[in-house]
């Protein structure tokens, strides 16, 4: 059975929030809130409680930061080990106070880079997606996007019309 992707446009956040709540409460037959993407020109933390989706960026960040510290220490220690052949004048070959400063910088360096890479990956950027989009989404309108089976298409469109959607766009999912 073929699937269709629908994008229902709304005048603003205040018009689209009740629709999301209604979909979650089962107001739109055959559509689950898990299938819905909410598009908006600005960030709306309020919809987190409706969509209940988790973000795991911090796990990547933590991993990157830990890697930065450990790699930093081993990198510096191995580099400093080459000083073994040189006279140290009683100073430690692997000086910890110095290395703490450099490990601190490496913690931040790797922490930030892994955060950025995880952002690109988890936000689904640089990924090819469907062409369904409206330029008004970067101006002042909000959109609800979802995939539906062909036989439900009509009823879902009717539902969005009832909910005062100002425009409905669709494309076939290939």
């Amino acid at each position: 059975m073929s699937k269709h992707r629908l994008l229902a446009m709304f005048k603003g956040f205040d018009d689209s929030l009740p629709v999301l709540r209604d979909i979650k409460a089962g107001g739109c037959a055959g559509v689950s809130i898990d299938d819905v993407d909410y598009l908006s020109p600005i960030e709306h933390p309020d919809i987190d409680e409706i969509l209940e989706r988790k973000v795991n960026v911090q796990k990547f960040t933590f991993t990157g930061a830990v890697f930065g510290v450990t790699f930093g220490f081993f990198f510096l220690a191995s580099a400093q080990a080459s000083f073994l052949v040189q006279p140290q004048g009683g100073k430690a070959v692997v000086p910890f106070p110095t290395n703490f400063v450099l490990m601190y910088e490496m913690l931040i360096f790797f922490g930030i880079w892994t955060t950025v890479f995880s952002f690109l990956f988890l936000a689904g950027l640089l990924r090819k997606r469907g062409t369904l989009y409206s330029e008004k989404l970067t101006v002042d309108q909000c959109g609800i996007m979802l995939e539906v089976d062909e036989h439900k298409l009509k009823s879902v469109k009717e539902y969005f019309k009832k909910q005062k959607s100002i425009e409905i766009r669709e494309e076939a999912v290939t």
Partner: peptide, 22 residues
């Protein structure tokens, strides 16, 4: 490829905050 969906905003918010913390 930004289109402003809820997942992108959520990850963006977290990323920006973490970067600010660093």
């Amino acid at each position: 490829g930004w289109r402003g969906d809820d997942r992108q905003w959520r990850v963006f918010r977290k990323t920006y905050m973490l970067m600010a913390c660093f």
